[in-house]
């Protein structure tokens, strides 16, 4: 089975995010970028499936700017066999990303797509679900356990109330949650080898998908900073406020 792993270039989770002066976006000027942490988990899962003899080949794919090659190289160092960058300088919305990916899935005869459950920049959590819909495949989101036996996928999902178990038909689209695994560090020799693994770059426009965005971002603002409230004189006064004014206890 061929596995496709989607890898997104996002701001490093450790950097401080600031809205730009024009209020059009966040300021990404020389900000450290990294592979989306949930995509890293998806990548790790793919490698484990290959190590278990279930996957035959892992293709890491990114849709983004030329610099996203860095993140694909990281994926290759973690164990992907080859990389594909669908290049687009413009940030594309999830529906477009899903459509482009569906084209690749068909081209490459993919049996399982692994993605992160969301990217930590736009926080949409849509691409996997949309891709699954377009392909007409089964869908396993927020996975915390992936188990493939005899062409069925036993999946455990993290849901609000706890854990949900599903049996999915293959092919399938799975989005990965935090507790699925702990991604490995890419070793130095593997990083070096990754530089020599095949990485194909194709313009997004070549796939025959309408790339125009249906969603317009009108404004990006900083969240309101909290204002300080009042100092209360006693525990009794505090409880009274919490009960009567706020109704939180």
């Amino acid at each position: 089975m061929k596995i496709l792993v989607m890898v997104k270039r996002v701001t490093d989770p450790n950097v401080i995010i600031r809205v730009n002066a024009e209020n059009t976006s966040v300021d990404l000027n020389n900000v450290k970028m990294a592979i989306n942490p949930f995509c890293e988990i998806a990548m790790e899962e793919a490698v484990r499936l290959k190590e278990a003899g279930i996957a035959t080949e892992i293709i890491a794919m990114s849709i983004g700017p030329a610099q996203a090659q860095d993140q694909l190289r990281t994926a290759l160092a973690m164990g992907a066999d080859r990389g594909l960058l669908v290049e687009s300088e413009e940030s594309l919305e999830p529906l477009t990303v899903a459509k482009l990916t569906a084209k690749v899935v068909e081209e490459e005869q993919i049996g399982l797509v692994l993605l992160g459950k969301q990217s930590i920049d736009t926080d949409n959590s849509q691409t996997g679900q949309m891709l699954s819909a377009i392909l007409g495949w089964s869908q396993g989101t927020f996975a915390s356990k992936v188990d493939i036996v005899d062409n069925t996928l036993n999946l455990t999902r993290e849901v609000d109330s706890g854990l949900q178990s599903l049996t999915l038909t293959l092919p399938s689209v799975v989005t990965c949650d935090l507790r699925l695994n702990e991604p490995r560090f890419a070793s130095l020799p593997n990083i070096m080898k990754a530089k020599r693994k095949p990485l194909v770059i194709k313009p997004a426009a070549d796939y025959g998908v309408d790339l125009t965005s249906k969603i317009k971002t009108l404004k990006v603002e900083s969240p309101n900073t909290r204002q300080s409230g009042e100092i209360v004189g006693s525990v009794a006064a505090l409880l009274d406020k919490l009960k009567t004014e706020k109704g939180v206890i």
Binding site: E182, P183, R184, F185, S187, L188, P189
Partner: peptide, 10 residues
């Protein structure tokens, strides 16, 4: 820990 990776000699 899980994910331990030994250092490497250069």
């Amino acid at each position: 820990k899980g994910g331990y990776m030994e250092g490497m000699e250069l």
